[in-house]
Design a protein around this nucleic acid. Structure first.
Length: 209
DNA sequence: ACATTAAGTGATT
DNA sequence: AATCACTTAATGT
């Protein structure tokens, strides 16, 4: 799909033209790291295709899932980081094969002043991501691990578009900053409750999860 | 058949 | 809820 058509309803015509001229589309293979912690952001990505996984690394070097960026979204962190050229606090990995528009950060100021639709797009993505982060904090602080696990599985399923999750218990434990045995036990409980089916390296989500 | 890796379990903190 | 020590099951060579 071309850029004009895809964003016709979001951006004004002149801005669409500018996007087309100033940005380039970048393709990235599944699993590639797009941005690592400590790097500075040089482009604003707007996702066209695929899913980006945004994670944070804890002191022990473990990776904790923050959120996913879906198509037609941008990464809020990139906005806040790039304008003052601060190093990134997060890591972005391509969860699937990914295609995105890379917009050079140099023209951000200009666009923000010039195009109301750009400003509201930026504000909207920051606001909705901020809300998501608050949610994530609530989860960590107040929810029990079993509820977090269910949430995690549903997110994963949404991200991959499948109810069959191809992950080992250990990989899940790592992403949730928990341990393998605990995840195994919780999954077992879910299986007894007829919410999932467990296989080796695979979990099938059932309807009433 | 054997080694390796994932998953299950009980006990301990 | 995490960790340890151990068992059992699945998978690759």
């Amino acid at each position: 799909m071309n850029i004009q058509g895809r964003f016709k309803n979001i951006f004004e015509p002149e801005l669409l033209k500018e996007i087309e001229n100033k940005s380039k589309t970048v393709s990235v293979k599944e699993g590639e790291v797009i941005l690592n912690i400590g790097q500075t952001v040089k482009q604003i990505p707007i996702l066209l295709e695929g899913i980006l996984k945004i994670t944070r690394i804890d002191n022990a070097g473990r990776e904790l899932l923050l959120y996913y960026v879906h198509a037609n979204e941008s990464c809020a962190m990139s906005f806040t980081c790039c304008m003052q050229q601060f190093p990134s606090e997060i890591k972005a990995t391509a969860e699937s094969d990914v295609e995105f528009l890379a917009i050079p950060i140099g023209i951000m100021d200009e666009w923000l002043a010039k195009y109301p639709t750009w400003k509201s797009f930026v504000m909207r993505t920051i606001r909705s991501r901020f809300n998501e982060l608050l949610n994530a904090i609530d989860q960590l602080a107040f929810q029990k691990l079993d509820e977090r696990l269910i949430h995690y599985l549903k997110e994963k399923s949404k991200a991959t578009g499948s109810t069959l999750i191809n992950l080992s218990h250990e990989e899940i434990a790592n992403e949730m900053a928990s341990s393998r045995e605990v995840i195994s036990r919780l999954l077992k409980k879910l299986e007894n409750d007829k919410k999932v089916l467990l296989y080796r390296n695979q979990i099938k989500l059932l309807r009433d999860l």
